[in-house]
Design a protein around this nucleic acid. Sequence first.
DNA 1: TTATCTTTGACAAACATTTGACAAATATAG
DNA 2: CTATATTTGTCAAATGTTTGTCAAAGATAA
Lengths: 211, 211
Amino acid sequence: MATSSKPALPVIRRLPKYYRYLVNMQQSGKKNVSSSELSKIMGTTASQVRQDFNCFGGFGQQGIGYKVDTLVTEIRHLLFGDGQPLPTILVGAGRLGTAVSQFLMRDANGYSLLAAFDNNPQLVGKTLNDIPIRHVDELRSFCSQHHPQVAVLCLPREGATQLSSTLVELGVKGFWNFSHYDLSVDYPQVMVENVHLGDSLMSLGYHMRNL
Amino acid sequence: MATSSKPALPVIRRLPKYYRYLVNMQQSGKKNVSSSELSKIMGTTASQVRQDFNCFGGFGQQGIGYKVDTLVTEIRHLLFGDGQPLPTILVGAGRLGTAVSQFLMRDANGYSLLAAFDNNPQLVGKTLNDIPIRHVDELRSFCSQHHPQVAVLCLPREGATQLSSTLVELGVKGFWNFSHYDLSVDYPQVMVENVHLGDSLMSLGYHMRNL
DNA sequence: TTATCTTTGACAAACATTTGACAAATATAG
DNA sequence: CTATATTTGTCAAATGTTTGTCAAAGATAA
């Protein structure tokens, strides 16, 4: 019955994984799921599943388990809010940017890609899955007009630091950063998610060589 | 003085980040660094830095700090072993595969990309930064001959499960998996690093909407 | 040399997370 | 209707991680 203390970070990091599995279940027509069943798929304990769901108010039923639909709805609401997609821009339309934009448009929920920017004249004018690639010089005027809330950074390290300050000034509230460095912004209300492919790869290397 | 109990997972996950910053310092000519200095850059406490380094045997000097060179060498050895790069193949040479292969070759240490595979006839025969793209049918014979240890999976979810079993049989010991599902292999000596861009993006969304 | 400053390594205390246990609630079978 | 099976929500115990503290070691300055 809705214990409602704000959830710990580890819980939040598990939400997307719950969500993925629950959507699968929903698609395959499964109606109910018990904590122990979910725990087996997730590779954790039933206790943890119950405790996690309780952070958001327990929507389970004793004797039955959890309704898959309810869980999906609740977690989706936590992750994507009211369903209004966050207006997003991509900066850097090279190979990585291209792949990421495709991912954003085809596989991700909750974001709408408005435009892409690059400083390479060869790319400017082309399109990326129907999104036009503009020159970075247009960034200021575009943002003033369209107020994107999220910026995806797929550009070399050098440009990124300065650019991020500019974007914060222009109202960007979240960064998905693929540049090879730790972006950190001093403004408290701005969120940064640094994606370090290299770190992930190094971890793999460590584990392969030390086990 | 080498306390040597095997390091906890959180410590290992921090190693790549230490490594990045330390290599930067090395390149800019910095010789020594104290735990408090590092902690500021890393966004943690000096205590944690000291404790982390002590997991591998403390190579610091009281009154001075740590030698940057020593740290880089030690951590590099932990992450990359003796420096022998791990022979690696890429399966799936679409946009994501292209971007990842570029990353592997340009920005990552410790891996050497031997070949790429795809089942799209339009891609087979082309090259990816000098690496030829072969048809997946050639996978078995190629692996029998070249014994890759790591497979990077950049293909749709459907193919990945079955493929991974095949690859394990063929001697692959580590997977860097970009398919949108959790690859888990039942063989205990095989490591899997699942990269979920979606999870990272969902976390960003959660934090943006709940703060 | 001596006093002072910096900094590590070690340990314990504080804090966070995960797990196990069980009462209460619902369903199911007899 | 009663007894038995499940299964949640909650709490406390167990485990894991981070932080603060301090003696000892080396550096630096007088």
